[in-house]
Each structure stands twice: as structure tokens, then as C-alpha cells.
Design a binder for these strands. Structure first.
Length: 459
DNA sequence: TCTGGGGTCCTCTGCCCT
DNA sequence: TCTGAGGGCAGAGGACCC
């Protein structure tokens, strides 16, 4: 431990700075480098390699050439011709992420995952075992390194906003000469937090994206210090009530959001951008079935059901349209999901072709939990067993390829088609569990390169 | 030679019900 | 019986995050 690190430990009291933000350094790139050591020291770009792919992560060497996340891969290649482009493999990153999560949970049970490569931790209950927060931060860094051979940066502060900004300050930087190591851990003491906060540009704050930034710049707000000085009425007029009041609080260092442990997701979705715009109705029907299968698989794998189904399309001019429907009964199987999605997509104009198709479900509950009642008072009996879930008011399509729900179908009983549907989904799950996701798919979807919903640019 | 995927949250609008 | 107000919810779109 360096002298600076000891100074930090001496200043921070155990309860002063309960929040840690841990962020892995160039996570996807470093996972790829563990798999292929030949990538070490070379500029690396991880992302979609197809015609419409974008950069998911870039090594610090590639960042020095101007490459950044969300940039089209084709442009990144031009900026950094020496870079090795590796296609994303999210299952591999998820594995590393699980190992990191285990390290976090060995320190505190209050962990809020933000993404595969970052999380907030509330360590207020961990001081007796692990010491003051800065000491916990250094311990986490070395424990993550030991478990995964990967580096992370840790921010330590009194709240989430400050901890997040602190972890950014702790990260390696990119100089013209190449990557420079960062602090590793940055502690923001209470006495310095306002000065630290106000020195940041306003876009560093959570919730300030391109649109909000433009609106803030319009009222001469550039730094967080500027933001703190603006009368709240002016701020609210510029960015709206909820956003304005939240930003005003954040700019004053006020952020009382607790660290939430991960729970049931609010929504589950799967979407895909096609290599070329799709106009063919048959092709679209197949894609709907494939996407529905992907979403349903994830619901079933996590023991969840959902009541609202939405479809999303992106047109060639990048305009987006969504159509959604909330059902009286929660659903979980691919055939039901595809049926509803087919009905929704029929309400959209597809004559110009589309570049993206997505299916999302929300209103999610555990399969064993009593479902939410609709505003119309349509009651749903509590679902307590998989068999009970089959008692769906909504009927099922006649064909596995996803024919629309009809009134005649609605009259079908709790067994019959629904039972077949469940058994079919169970069988698919079992086969995929044993042989992998790519071995079987629905007839209308056809066999593709990967499992349902698996990214087609996967390894 | 364009612009991914998987999420969350907020706002606005329209509808239904009281 | 009609009408308006207001609450709650669904649906659609948008902004933002990593």
C-alpha cells in the first residue's frame, strides 16, 4: 500500500463513506485478452463486426486513436487500422462477471449490479470485518484481481453520484503516448465533495445525455458548479420537473438513493438489427418467432411470467414505433408470446421495410407470485404451479409458427393446446440445457447460427 | 459510409371509472 | 340523465445508462 493510500485510510471514518462504485477497466477487452494473450499490448476493438455493428468496448490503445464505445465498427477500423476486431461474446463476459459478483458478495450482501462490469456496494455493515471503506476498496481491487486476473477501479464516497464520479477519476487515462495507469481507488472525503463535484462538467452527472446537455448549455450551464447556481425554476423550465429537481439536488451533492440489491427485472427484451432492411412478411414472421423464443426462454429460465407484450420496429430512416398490449393473464411460452407479437406487428406499416425488430415483455412477476390485476378489474387467479399457469384466458395460436389469437382459441380449455404448448416449451428447454441452444429452434425461425436470441456475431 | 442491444424511468395522452 | 373533475392505468414515445 502506498503512502497516499494510508493517508486516505487515516482520514475516512468507517461510517462516513458507505458507498463504493466498482468499475472494471476495459472489461470486454481484458476478458478477450485472457482468452487470447496474443491481443495483449495491441489495440483491440470488441463489438459487432457486421455491416451495422458498433463498438462495445475498446482497449486503451484503441481509445488513444479516437475509438470509443457506440461508434460504428467500420469507422473505428478506419480510425485505428492496426486494431484487432473481436466479435462480442457476452456469455464469456457473464462468466467473468459472476466471478466478480462473488467477490463483491464476500464483502457485503448489499450489491447493486449496474452492468456486467460495474456495481454499487453499500459497505456500511462491513467495517468490523474489513475496516474503513477505503481499506475495503483496496481489498476488493486485489480480491477481484486474484479471482479473475482483471483490474478494476473503485470510487469511495458518501453517495452513489460521488462514488461513480470517483471511480471514473480512479481509472486509467489515455495520453498521446499511450495508456497511463490510474489511481485504482479514489476516495472523496466529505470535506472535499462539493469542490470535487463542482469541478466536473455537467455531462458527467448521471441523467445528463446529449439532449439534456444541450438544454443546459442553452441556459449557460456548463459545469456542475454552474448547475448548482441556477435557480430551480429556471432548471425546471429547461428540463422538466422531475429531471430538474433531481439535477438540482445532485449538483448540491444530495443523493439519497439507496443501493438496491438486484431483484425481478422490470422488463425482458430481445431485438435485432438486420444486416439489410427486411420487407418480406414470411421472413418477419420467422424473426418474430425466433425473438419470442429468445424472450420466453429467458423468462422460463428465471421462473418469471409477464403480462405486457410490446413489439418495436425501427424503419430505414431510424424512426421508431412501438405497439404494446397488456393481457389479462401472464404468459411465459414462446408460442403465446409470438401470437401476441404477430397481432401487434400487424398494426404497424411494414411496407417500407424495417432495419430492426424487437420484442419486449414487462409487468413481470415470479411464476409463483399472484399476478397483478388489470385496471379493468379482470381478475387472475394466483398462479402456484406450472400447471396452473396453463389456465390462460388467452388462447394459443393454431400453429407453432405463431398464428394470431382468435376468439375460438380463447374457448380452448386449460389442457389441450395449452398443455401441448407447455410441454413443447419444456422439451425445448431440456434439449437446449443438454445440448446447447443452437441445436433446436422453432420451425418458422429456421436453424440459425446460434441459440434463440444469441447474438449472431457471437464467437 | 453510419448510427447495437438490453435495460430503466419519465412524460404525455387518451380512456375508463367514480 | 347528463356533464365535468379527477384518479388510475395503458400505451406510445423519448432520454438516458452501460
Amino acid at each position: 500500500m502506498t503512502g497516499d493510500q494510508h493517508d486516505q485510510l487515516a482520514v475516512a471514518g468507517p461510517d462516513e463513506l458507505p458507498i463504493l462504485h466498482v468499475d472494471m477497466d476495459a472489461f470486454y477487452v481484458e476478458v478477450e485478452r485472457k482468452r487470447d494473450p496474443a491481443l495483449v499490448g495491441r489495440p483491440v476493438i470488441v463489438g459487432g463486426s457486421g455491416r451495422r455493428g458498433v463498438v462495445a468496448s475498446a482497449s486503451y490503445e484503441a481509445r488513444a486513436a479516437g475509438v470509443h464505445a457506440a461508434m460504428p465498427t467500420a469507422r473505428a477500423r478506419r480510425l485505428c487500422p492496426a486494431a484487432v476486431v473481436v466479435t462480442s461474446d457476452f456469455s464469456g463476459y457473464a462468466e467473468a462477471s459472476e466471478a466478480i459478483a462473488e467477490v463483491f458478495e464476500s464483502v457485503t450482501p448489499i450489491v447493486e449490479p449496474i452492468a456486467l462490469d460495474e456495481a454499487f456496494l453499500d459497505v456500511s455493515g462491513a467495517h468490523r470485518l474489513f475496516g474503513p471503506s477505503p481499506e475495503i476498496a483496496w481489498h476488493l481491487r486485489s480480491a477481484v484481481r486474484q479471482a479473475t486476473d482483471l483490474d478494476c477501479s473503485v470510487g469511495v464516497a458518501s453517495n452513489k453520484t460521488l462514488a461513480k464520479l470517483a471511480s471514473v477519476a480512479a481509472k486509467p487515462t489515455v495520453q498521446s503516448s499511450g495508456p497511463e495507469p490510474g489511481l485504482g481507488v479514489r476516495v472523496v472525503e466529505r470535506a472535499e465533495q462539493i469542490a470535487f463535484l463542482w469541478a466536473h462538467r455537467v455531462e458527467a452527472l448521471w441523467g445528463v445525455g446529449p439532449v439534456t446537455l444541450r438544454r443546459l448549455n442553452d441556459i449557460d450551464v456548463v459545469s456542475v458548479g454552474d448547475l448548482a447556481a441556477v435557480p430551480i425554476e429556471r432548471l425546471v423550465a429547461a428540463v422538466g420537473t422531475a429531471h430538474g429537481t433531481q439535477l438540482a439536488a445532485l449538483a448540491r451533492g444530495i443523493d439519497d438513493r439507496p443501493v438496491h440489491r438486484g431483484g425481478i427485472p422490470r422488463s425482458v427484451s430481445h431485438e435485432e438489427t438486420f444486416d439489410t432492411d427486411v420487407r418480406d412478411p414470411d421472413r418477419l414472421r420467422g424473426e418474430i418467432v425466433r425473438l419470442a423464443d429468445a424472450v420466453a426462454s429467458r423468462l422460463r429460465a428465471n421462473g418469471l411470467v409477464a403480462r405486457t407484450v410490446a413489439v418495436k420496429v425501427k424503419y430505414p430512416d431510424f424512426s421508431l414505433r412501438t405497439r404494446a398490449q397488456t393481457l389479462a393473464e401472464p404468459i411465459q411460452t414462446p408460442r403465446l408470446l409470438a401470437s401476441v407479437a404477430h397481432e401487434l406487428i400487424a398494426r404497424l406499416d411494414l411496407s417500407t421495410g424495417i432495419r430492426l425488430l424487437g420484442i419486449a415483455v414487462s409487468n413481470i412477476a415470479e411464476a409463483s407470485a399472484p399476478p397483478v390485476r388489470s385496471s379493468a378489474g379482470v381478475g387472475v387467479e394466483a398462479l402456484t404451479a406450472p400447471e396452473t399457469q396453463l389456465q390462460l384466458e388467452l388462447g394459443v395460436g393454431r400453429h407453432f409458427s405463431g398464428e394470431s389469437v382468435s376468439s375460438r382459441d380463447t374457448e380452448s380449455g386449460p389442457t389441450g393446446d395449452a398443455e401441448l404448448d407447455r410441454r413443447l416449451a419444456d422439451a425445448l428447454d431440456a434439449i437446449r440445457g443438454r445440448f446447447g441452444g443452437a441445436v433446436i429452434s422453432h420451425g418458422a425461425a429456421g436453424l440459425r447460427d446460434g441459440a434463440p436470441g444469441e447474438r449472431r456475431w457471437g464467437r
